[in-house]
Every structure is written in C-alpha cells, then in structure tokens.
Design a protein around this nucleic acid. Structure first.
Length: 880
RNA sequence: GGGAGCUUAGCUCAGCUGGUUCAGAGCAUCUGCCUUACAAGCAGAGGGUCAUUGGUUCGAAUCCAUUAGCUCCCACCA
C-alpha cells in the first residue's frame, strides 16, 4: 500500500507527507471503534466536551494529547479502549456569541422568535462543532467517532430532563425568590461559580444622611452611590458608642425623601468607614440578609439590564447604573451632602461570560439543594475510590464540598435544555414531568433553560445510550481535565454519578497543567499570546507538538509554553526518523529487490555479544520505568524516559556500536545484527506510539510488509522481562563508554584534528577483546595497544579511568602546558571527591550506623580514587 | 482572612519513599567537525554554596520548622 523505495525517504522527516495519510488509514479501517465485549476489560475515557463557542487552544492540545496517550497505551495493552468524543452546547457562552453574530447581521434577538433563534444556534453548532472535530483529528486523537455526542442530542436531552424531574420529585429542586448573581449583559442569573472577582480601582464616597426632626446627621461610606436610591435602612454596630443614641431613630433618605430606620446589627464593623452602613436589601447580599432580619422594605431599583426602573425618582429613571452613579453623586454634592471621596480598591464580582460586573439581584429562580447530594460524592473522594492526580486537589474539593450552597440552575436564556415545568394558567399549579401535560392548552411552560453544567454533569453516564453499554463502560476509568473546572464539572459529575448511578463516574482524575506564556500569563485571546494549534501542527507536525507538550508539562504544575519549544518534539521526531532510515539503508544494501523485509528472524539469537545484552537490558528497564510512570500518571516522566532511551541509548551508543559489526562482520553476523536491531527498533516505536502516533506508524509500516488494516496502534505493547536485565553487560558498556569519552576528551582538549587518526595505549588487564574492538571503532584509532605492564611513553596525553590508564602518544603535537592543566584539573576534581569520602569514612557515627553496603561503596570509591590520584601525580611529575 | 503550589546552571525545568561521582536534562554559550542515519546533527567544554535561617540525622536538593519572593484558588467587609 506504500511505495517502499528507499530513495524516496527524505533525510529530514516531513510530517505533512505522513500525518493525514495515517489518520485516514486508521479511520477507514475503523481501528478505534469499541463495542461491548464481555471477554475484554474496557478502558473508558469520556472527553471533556469542548464548548462550541470557538476553536481549540493550546490547553486543549495538552488535555487531548494526554487522553490519547492513555487510550492508545491501554488499547495496545489489550484493553477494550473506548474514548467518547463530543461537544458541549455551552448555553450562556454560545447564546452570547450567537446574539453577537446576529447583531452583526442586523438582527436583534428581542425581535426573533425562540424557534428561529434556536435555528441560528444549531447553525452555529454545526459550524464550530465541525471545526473542533477537525482540529482533534489533526492532533491524531484515537476517539471512537461512531460515538460522537453532543449535550443536546435527543437522547442526552431527555436524560437531562429526566434528571431534573427526578430531583424535583425527590425534593432536591425547588423554586424560590432569592438574591442571585445577575449578569446584565445576558440578562440571566448565573451561579456563584460563574462569578470571578477582579480588583478594581474604585472610590469610597462619604454621604451625610440627616436624622429626621433633628440637626444631626449620620455619615455613611459606600462604593456604590447609585444604590442609595434603594436604601431602606441604616445599620450600626450595637456596641458603637457614637451611634447608640440614634438607634431606633428615623433617617430621611436624601433625594428620595424616604424615611428609613437606623438600627443595630452585629454584622457592622465599627472600624470600617464611618461605622454606619447604608442598607440596600434589593442589591446587596448582606443588606438583603439584614433586611430580612429587620423587616426592611425591599426596593428594587434596576431593570434586568441594570438600568434604573420606576422605583427611583423620575429624573433618575432609565439610566445605566454607572450614569446614575454620576448623577447621584452630583446631586448629593449640590445638596452639600457629599462629605468626601477617597480612593479605594475593592473586589468586584464579574460575570465570567459577559465580563461585566454582576448585579446582586432578586428574582425567581430554580435551585438545587446540595447539602445532602454532596455527601456520598465527598466520601468517595476522601476514601480514595476516586483518585485525584495530583492528590492535593482533594483538599480543594473537600473545602468546596463542605461549604457548598444551593445551586441556581435556571438561566433566562433560550439555548439549552428547557426546564420541564408547566404552570397551570389558572391555578398556577406546577406540573413537572418529562412529557408535557395532556391538556397542554391549560398550561404554559417555564421559559428558562438549565445551567450548562446541569446537563454536562451527566456526561460520564449518559454518553452511553443503552443500559448494556452503560453497564459495561461505566464507571469510566480516567478523566483528564483542567483544574479550573473542578467545581463546575468534576465535582458535579461525581455528585450525579453517586446519585443517579449509585456509583463513581471515574476512577482517576488527572488535572492538567495550566498552559501559560513565557511571562507566566494565562493564554488568552485578548492578550494575543495564544498560538493557534493548527499553525503549530502545520509547521512542525502534530507529533512534535504532542511530544513537546508532554515533555514540558509536569503533573500538577503550570507550564510555560512558547512556540520555539515545539522544536524539542520536532528534533526528536527527526532523530527517530533518521535512526529508521539508517536501518532501512542497511537493509537495502543487504538484499536485492525493492522489498523491505526483516532479514532473517531465525538469526535473531545468533552472534550475541555484550552490546546486545546491554541494549536489551536498558530497554527492559526503560519499559518497566515507563509503564510504572504512566500508571502513576507521571506522563512527563514517561516522556523523558522514552526520549533519553531513544536518543542516548539507542541512537548515540547502540547504533554507533552496531556499525562495527554491520560494516565488518561476516555475512551472517550482519544479518543477525540488523535483524535484531530492527526488531528492537520496532518495539521501541511502540513505546513512542502513544506519544507520537503518526511517525511511529510511518516507520513501523516501512520496516516490514504489513497486512491491510494492520497498525502499530493495535499491536501489543512491549512487556518487560526482568531476566533481560543484565547488570554485567551494563557495567561492561559503561567501561567502554568511560574509556571512549576519556579518549575523545583528550582529542578535543589537545586539538587533534578529527581527520587525524591517533594511536592509543591502554594499560589495563580488565578489557576484553570485544570491548577493545568497540573502543577502537568508536574513536578513530589507528593502532590500539592493550598491555597491563606497559610504561607511559614520552610526550603523551593521559587519562585515568577506573582500572585503565590511557595514553595517547602525541609526539611533536603535544603542548605540555595544556596537558599539565588537564591533569591538574583532574587531580583537583578527584582530590575533592576523595576528601569528602575520607571525611565520611572517618566519621564514627557513619561507620557505626550506615548500612554495610553504603559503607562498602564508600570504601571502594576511596580506593579507586586514591589509586587514580597516585597515577595522576606520577603523570604530572613526568610532565615537568 | 483561609487554603494550595512554586523558588535547583543565563533560560525552561527533571531530581520518587534521605546514601550508586547526586548536583542532572534540553535550550543558549564556547571549541572542533557537512565522519557513508540525522548540521533539526556529531564529539568535547564551561556554568549552580539546590531562595533564607534553623532543626532532625552518621549523612539533607530531598524530611520538619522559619523567613522572604512569586503564582493560583476560596471567602459577603459597606
């Protein structure tokens, strides 16, 4: 299916040629579809459905990459992996976008029918939902696209409504006239969680309110002068001597002329402001509560859009809240009632969606009683049935859950799940059922829709559309999400799961890093610091982006991202690509014809030496550490492990070591070495695959003839075998590496041209012939002599490795000064280390209390260094 | 006001339950190389009293406490 002509394999990896091709292939062969299969254990993830308000950003990339890593990993591990993709209707956010879009087209929502408006919303959903799914495919996610879900699908919609009806009948949902957070922009109530607080540079105004029938006045301080039009009382602390005599007196409210009481309430802080508080029960939560305690009149002065209504004097009506503010202040100044103005920073609640200050506002809304519902959901997290990663989020969760207040779930919007409540036109009796009443003509339906989160809280359970599926896939295994929706979504899904399913919705929750720019700022459109993931993919490939994200994003910490960082992944992809090319080129040179097949698997276990045992040992260790890291949700650690194995162990050393036998071995030996290298490389690609699905598939397919529909993504993940771990081979290689590095060091420091071959003398009795052979091949040596009894030749550069003295004769080339400096530096280094070991060993406490093996290790170190030091001193003396 | 997290090389960060030359990686810098997989590369090199102070311990980047700085979350102070 793929032209396997080696001449076509470019030197530099080009993801553009590769990525779309394989995504198409996976899709066509339906490799990621999951069905109920009782013979296999499911591994299930439901995607945090992106809002259809826009396109995906870099945070989504991280989030979805992580999910894909786990899904691919578990799929290869033999689980029935099922990843359900979907999107969220995002009630208030989308409605705001659609209203704005219509406005741009010259259409006013107020002149549009509900049905027409919903049509526009669905158009929007089709467009942006499509973009989102396209982006996800570009990223390479292995979702089950046959399971695409939307929070307003017919089935899902019904489930949301059923949940409402059930909770209503159980008494958890009630309707009430309460003070809520009002968003004047969308003209809807919002929940406490949708309010965020901003520090605002404001002012504190001091007003004089006169006491009725008296010359006395009371001074109040306020940050919101306009609300004075709705004042219905003045509060002071009962202990406050300044005001004790005034308690019970009547105050005349300026401008309005209303007579209001002055009363005492413990809420008032004597120290703040003047110690006297103007009380506006309709427009402040605390004032409202004081109002209830003291039976104050409640005067609502605002319309739904936060303009003033008929409850204020005529000249102040129908004005925006900030215009009224100026007007009120101006009038009070005219009346000489404005005492002073101070600068004051305070925190103002803003609507998360509308980004305008919210208004505490009295209105009739639907609420969910939370205190009882929360209990089982808190329990399962505290006792570890649902595990958070990192674990410390449980504290945040516990705090929120134990201080939870009732949830305002109704929204004065059209886009969303309409509340399944009908009121009788005459009796006003409430009818709450999934289906409308039979005598529908006698009823009218509640206009409001549900909070988005009162639909997505069922996501983990109701993306499965029949009982059999639900039973098989639920509880899901892993939820990967940003920590900023821990209350909105994670907590509520657990609540819903425990209430409706009597079972947790997921076993593990992975909280991702928040992606910031290099200055630590959150990525945002308004700052313009948010890169478009598609641009990055276009430039470097999805694999590069995916790998980079996991490489730089530690568990539970913010990550600082910049576009250049994607080069980490790009370079890594290129490295693997070229390692693959190296193998393929050798393959081609050893066989006739265009077919690339593994040479001869029967030679797999022939011509094995310590380099083979070493790489196998390293590989098995890597698999072990890699899988353990993933199982602990340390994706970042896993990506570093695979990176270092591929680059350092496999490419830097194993490939270089192999060249000796590939170029100089017998025919059979060459085949054996190459066969093994390819088999090992294939296994390595499987480790990489969850992180970089495209390039691993591409190379894997190039390495051998594959059947139609065969894919690395459905191959078996490597299992480690502890018997393959070979400490002896590892130390043998380490010895080779140390000697080689020492020789290269001499070359570099002594400025020996790389083209110039040198002679090297090794004074040791510990090198095997094999090791010698490899050393020779790795450092471009003309002649290599090994003799345990040799004397140091004149004019040579030297180095001392444990158990081996190295001499490089450089007659005529050597600069004694450079060499002396080199040796002196080495002496200083070793002396320092020796000093600290000696100190340790002369410490009685250490010798008495440390474990025997630790002491033994220190003794060995001391001996080695003492010997090395002695030798170096002799060498140095020889140089002077 | 309460809570969580962070502070290690010029930059971005690894270093798990204290002990393997543990003080590391990548980028950046310097030196030398287009060596028949890879210059998106190879081989070397320089660079850090692990934020502060104290404690526990034979032994601390690692555990405890303290101080300072930064970040985030929660909370009704007009």
């Amino acid at each position: 299916m793929y032209p396997k002509n080696l001449a076509d394999i470019p030197k530099a990896y080009n993801p553009k040629d590769v990525e779309d091709k394989w995504y198409q292939y996976w899709y066509e062969h339906n490799l990621y579809h999951s069905e109920v299969d009782e013979s296999k254990t499911p591994y299930t993830i439901v995607i945090p459905p992106p809002n259809i308000t826009g396109i995906l950003h870099i945070g989504h990339i991280l989030n979805n990459t992580l999910q894909d890593i786990y899904i691919r990993y578990k799929r290869m591990k033999g689980f029935n992996a099922c990843w359900v993709p979907g999107i969220d209707h995002a009630s208030i956010a989308t409605e705001a976008k659609v209203v704005a879009m219509l406005k741009a087209r010259g259409i006013n929502k107020d002149n549009t029918s509900r049905a027409d408006f919903l049509k526009y919303c669905y158009e929007w959903k089709e467009k942006y939902g499509g973009i989102i799914f396209k982006q996800l495919r570009k990223l390479g996610v292995s979702c089950d696209w046959q399971r695409e879900r939307f929070t307003m699908d017919i089935h899902y919609y019904r489930k949301v409504v059923e949940a409402f009806v059930k909770l209503y009948k159980e008494g958890y949902i009630y309707r009430g006239y309460r003070m809520v957070n009002w968003d004047p922009a969308s003209r809807s109530a919002i929940s406490d969680e949708e309010v965020f607080y901003k520090e605002v540079q404001g002012k504190l105004w001091y007003f004089k309110y006169t006491v009725k029938d008296s010359k006395e006045f009371v001074v109040v301080a306020t940050t919101r002068p306009e609300t004075m039009l709705g004042d219905t009382g003045i509060a002071v602390n009962p202990q406050d001597e300044r005001y004790k005599h005034l308690i019970g007196k009547t105050i005349v409210l300026p401008i309005v002329g209303r007579e209001i009481p002055l009363f005492a309430d413990d809420y008032v802080d004597k120290e703040f402001g003047t110690g006297a508080v103007k009380v506006t029960p309709a427009h402040d939560v605390n004032d409202y509560e004081m109002g209830l305690r003291h039976n104050l009149e409640i005067v609502n002065i605002f319309n739904e859009d936060a303009t003033t209504n008929g409850n204020v004097p005529a000249e102040f009506r129908n004005l925006d809240r900030y215009d009224v503010r100026e007007k009120v202040v101006a009038r009070l100044e005219e009346l000489s009632l404005l005492l002073k103005v101070e600068n004051y920073t305070n925190k103002v609640g803003y609507s998360q969606r509308g980004n305008v200050p919210i208004e505490p506002y009295l209105s009739e809304q639907w609420f969910m009683k939370m205190d009882e519902l929360v209990k089982p959901a808190l329990e399962v997290v505290l006792d570890g049935k649902v595990k958070f990663h990192p674990e410390h989020w449980t504290k945040t969760y516990e705090h929120w859950m134990t201080n939870i207040r009732d949830w305002c779930i109704s929204r004065q919007l059209w886009w969303g799940h309409r509340i399944p409540v009908w009121y009788h036109k005459e009796t006003h009796e409430i009818y709450c059922e999934v289906e409308p009443p039979n005598d529908i003509d006698n009823y009218y339906q509640d206009d409001d829709v549900l909070d988005t989160w009162a639909s997505s809280w069922l996501w983990a359970q109701d993306v499965f559309t029949n009982e059999r599926e639900q039973k098989y896939y639920y509880p899901t295994d892993l939820l990967v999400t940003a920590p900023d929706i821990i209350f909105f979504w994670v907590a509520r899904m657990i609540i819903a799961g425990m209430h409706f399913m009597k079972e947790i919705p997921f076993k593990d929750v992975y909280f991702t890093s928040t992606v910031r720019d290099t200055q630590g700022r959150k990525m945002s459109k308004s700052l313009g610091n948010s890169p478009d993931p598609l641009d990055l993919i276009d430039e470097h490939g999805a694999d590069a982006l995916r790998f980079t994200m996991t490489y730089i994003a530690p568990l539970g910490q913010d990550v600082h991202f910049s576009n250049e960082m994607v080069e980490i992944g790009r370079n890594f992809a290129n490295k693997m690509w070229n390692a693959g090319r190296f193998l393929l080129m050798n393959l081609a040179s050893q066989q006739s014809g265009a077919k690339n097949i593994r040479l001869d698997p029967s030679l797999k276990d022939k011509h094995i030496d310590f380099t083979d045992r070493w790489i196998l040992s390293r590989f098995n260790k890597t698999i072990k550490e890699f899988t353990e890291a993933l199982d602990r949700f340390e994706v970042n650690a896993a990506s570093k492990l695979v990176y270092s194995y591929v680059w350092n162990d496999f490419c830097d050393w194993f490939v270089e070591l192999s060249k000796q036998r590939l170029y100089q071995g017998s025919e059979e030996e060459r085949s054996a070495v190459l066969t093994r290298a390819i088999l090992l490389f294939e296994e390595m690609l499987k480790l990489v695959h969850p992180f970089m699905p495209f390039i691993s598939e591409e190379i894997w397919q190039l390495l051998d003839e594959r059947k139609t529909g065969e894919s690395i993504s459905t191959s078996a993940f490597p299992e480690y075998d502890l018997r393959k771990i070979d400490e002896k081979a590892e130390s043998e290689i380490l010895f080779v590496q140390e000697v080689v590095t020492a020789i290269r060091n001499i070359r570099g420091e002594m400025n020996v041209a790389p083209s110039k071959a040198i002679n090297v003398l090794l004074k040791t009795d510990q090198l095997t012939k094999e090791q010698t052979k490899y050393i020779k091949s790795l450092v471009r040596i003309d002649e290599l002599k090994v003799d345990p009894n040799m004397n140091k030749p004149k004019a040579s550069a030297s180095a001392v490795v444990k158990g081996c003295d190295i001499f490089v004769p450089l007659e005529g080339l050597i600069d004694l000064n450079i060499e002396r400096t080199r040796i002196e530096k080495e002496i200083t280094r070793i002396s320092g280390s020796l000093e600290s070991v000696k100190k340790k060993l002369s410490n009685e406490g250490f010798v008495a209390k440390a474990p025997a093996e630790v002491i033994e290790r220190e003794r060995t170190k001391m001996n080695d260094w003492e010997k090395a030091l002695e030798k170096l001193k002799v060498i140095l003396a020889d140089l002077t």
